[in-house]
Amino acid sequence: MKRLWDISPPLHTGSPVFPGDTPYRQRWAASIGPGCPVNVSELTLSPHAGAHADGPLHYAAGAPAIGNVALDAFLGPCRVVHCIDVGPLVLPEHLRHAADGLPPRVLVRTCRQAPVDRWVDDFTAFAPQTLEWLADRGVRLVGIDTASVDPAPSKTLDAHQVLLRRDLRVLENLVLDDVEEGDYELIALPLKLVQADASPVRAVLREL
């Protein structure tokens, strides 16, 4: 069997979300007991909780919902690149050491340890020119181990606008703590939420 790496954070009550976003909540609609043979839960959460894929609808009015986006970008060869402690923005120069023969999917590790149990404001994001640089090299999906490809205070979402213009798919809130630099197979399919701006994913890497 090929080795798998689960690169999704745990999702539960208390999981961090963007300030103001809907947190994870769960209640039991039915519980096993006399007259009831099953447990059935009800979930309330932002589709941006945990590891997730943004759809174009998230950053452009009238753009496709995540359930209407083709799945091929979310499945296939990818490269994990370490850009740990590079500062507020991942720049092209931080990726050049791993640029030869880039596959269509690039995941960037910026954290020594992903903050899966707390919110942090000063996370590393992508510089817009870095996404342009990756798109110019045939990359179709980018991923990062922080809450957003844009800095937390951004109101213009310049990196997201590059995603829109270059038709790039994106994964956010990954956990790459235990993943070495190198090439893998990515499997991170979004749900078919045909009205939603994003979808949770169970993101995994598999050795080639």
Rank of each mutant, 00 (worst) to 15 (best):
F126Y: 15
L11H: 00
H52L: 02
P128G: 01
R140M: 06
P128K: 00
P64C: 04
H97M: 05
V142T: 08
P77S: 08
G101Y: 05
R112C: 01
P151H: 03
V40T: 09
A51Q: 10
P9V: 14
D158K: 06
L4D: 08
R165A: 14
Q113A: 15
A60D: 04
T13N: 05
L102A: 12
P56I: 04
G143V: 07
V40Q: 12
R206T: 13
G35Y: 01
G87E: 14
K2G: 02
A99I: 05
E185D: 13
V116S: 10
P92N: 05
D122C: 00
D21I: 02
T124E: 08
H160R: 10
T110V: 14
P88G: 03
R202K: 11
V204P: 00
P92H: 06
E185Y: 12
L4N: 00
L91Y: 09
A198L: 12
W119Y: 09
T146L: 00
A159K: 01
R137N: 07
D183W: 02
L71I: 07
D183N: 13
P200M: 06
E180W: 03
H160Y: 02
P47E: 10
N68T: 01
P37N: 04
H48M: 09
H160N: 11
D72L: 11
I32T: 10
L174W: 05
V17R: 07
A73H: 04
Y24G: 08
T44I: 13
P9I: 13
R96P: 01
P153L: 01
I187D: 12
P200I: 00
P16V: 01
D85M: 13
H52G: 01
A159N: 03
D122K: 04
G76A: 09
L45T: 04
M1H: 06
F123C: 11
V120S: 06
G101C: 07
D6H: 06
R25D: 06
L43Y: 12
A147V: 07
P9Q: 11
R79E: 11
L193Q: 01
R118A: 14
S148D: 15
R27M: 13
D136M: 01
P77A: 06
T124C: 13
V69A: 08
V69N: 02
N39V: 05
E132P: 02
K155F: 00
G143E: 07
A152Q: 11
D150L: 02
P200C: 01
V120E: 14
I144F: 05
L43K: 11
S15H: 08
V149Q: 00
A125S: 14
G138M: 06
V175P: 01
R140C: 07
P23A: 13
D121N: 12
A196I: 00
V120M: 14
C83I: 03
L57A: 11
L107I: 11
T44E: 15
S15W: 04
V194Q: 08
V162C: 02
D178P: 07
D178V: 05
A65I: 03
V162F: 02
W5H: 15
V69K: 03
P104N: 12
C83K: 06
